[in-house]
Design a protein around this nucleic acid. Structure first.
Lengths: 205, 205
DNA sequence: TAATATACTGTATAAATATATAGTATATTG
DNA sequence: CAATATACTATATATTTATACAGTATATTA
């Protein structure tokens, strides 16, 4: 399965959204108005790219003739049991079974990226970002992070959720609450690992 | 739910078959060739009958603009597909199709109670409760509410999310943001309906 | 018994739609 | 460094498609 570009992913999601909302796939024009293109050919070429990469089928001559190919991989990913991580014991990998509180069944199409686990929030350091204690942060494992991202970091064997800001060799892990102070990490000295990015949140009242 | 005639059932199954096989609904002409009709109007009138009996929706002017309404009797396991409500048009029921932005597949065991729909949050009036704009509030339809509950109320045909406080005939709808003021409702004068309770939240970053 | 619903054929057409062609520009790859 | 992929705008058009209109016939309902 070839990887999609960000724009191609947008188009594929646009098709999914249309089917979910209306019951049928979009026209080229509808894709354009949804994504802000001004030429039908923009949609057309993206569709042909998705077809080439086997994400969709296009039936020639048919209006809305788009079929999303749900192959075995995506079907298996579609409904998924995702672990909920409570407190992480020192020295153990985040996803070690002793850290798994329980599992949540979710549709992997719910968030923009794949959810690898949910992290249960401790404390109120991210209050101003609308993140409260016991909220579940949907975490996508990745090593790609940019400044301002909501990051799950492991600093000296402790897992923390903060905003990520890097400048040269100095890493700032910034909270979203005036009562808390940033954690500064010297990337040359300290032991720090990016666990993943916070791509969503689930709260149970 | 009105009963279908044998021919109408055939047409509905023909639509289902098309969606299952191709991924999109059929055209009038395709229904005709599938069922042996020789006039597109045969399909058209059957579709209008199905629409009238609320088995399908037809979007005017759209090719293949047929949407099968999966209700209680549905064959599929759509009980997991929960509608997402964006802006609610004045005068329309909250769950009217024009208000449904799309649908989310969730496990109904995710929250403590059954989720009837998700309400997309407008504005920042619940900021201090960790509820931000565009968050999806999981709403459980009920008429049981107590003071302090997070309630989805309809006041004078406008839907709002606030904390519920009632004292005699005076209802206070309290925001969670100092920049906003409570809405006070005289239960004898004003038109107010409890739509449901906020039992959870989903956020996509 | 008249009105309405069902179940079709047949024809016509405005509008919706897919799709080709002609460009421009940038990024990535062999 | 040339070839290819990506990401668009802009215009044109043949085909697809929804939908209206004109009929015929039978069954069901008020």
């Amino acid at each position: 399965m070839k990887k999609l570009t960000p724009q191609q992913t947008k188009v594929l999601n646009c098709i999914r959204d249309s089917i979910n909302k209306t019951g049928f796939p979009p026209t080229r024009a509808e894709i354009c108005s949804e994504l802000g293109f001004s030429s039908p050919n923009s949609a057309e070429t993206h569709l042909r790219a998705l077809e080439k990469k086997k994400y969709i089928e296009i039936r020639a001559g048919s209006s809305r003739g788009i079929n999303i190919l749900e192959n075995s991989q995506s079907l298996r990913q579609n409904e998924n049991k995702v672990p909920v991580i409570g407190l992480v014991a020192a020295g153990s990998p985040t996803l070690a079974s002793e850290n798994i509180e329980r599992k949540l069944t979710i549709d992997q199409g719910m968030f923009k990226k794949n959810v690898d686990y949910f992290l249960k929030v401790k404390g109120m350091s991210m209050l101003d970002a609308g993140i409260l204690e016991d909220d579940l942060i949907a975490v996508h494992k990745t090593d790609k992070v940019k400044n301002g991202d909501l990051a799950v970091m492991r600093v000296n064997d402790e897992v923390t959720l903060k905003y990520f800001y890097k400048k040269n060799n100095l890493l700032e892990l910034r909270p979203a609450n005036n009562d808390f102070k940033s954690i500064f990490v010297d990337l040359e000295k300290d032991d720090v690992v990016l666990e993943g990015l916070g791509i969503g949140l689930i709260r149970k009242n």
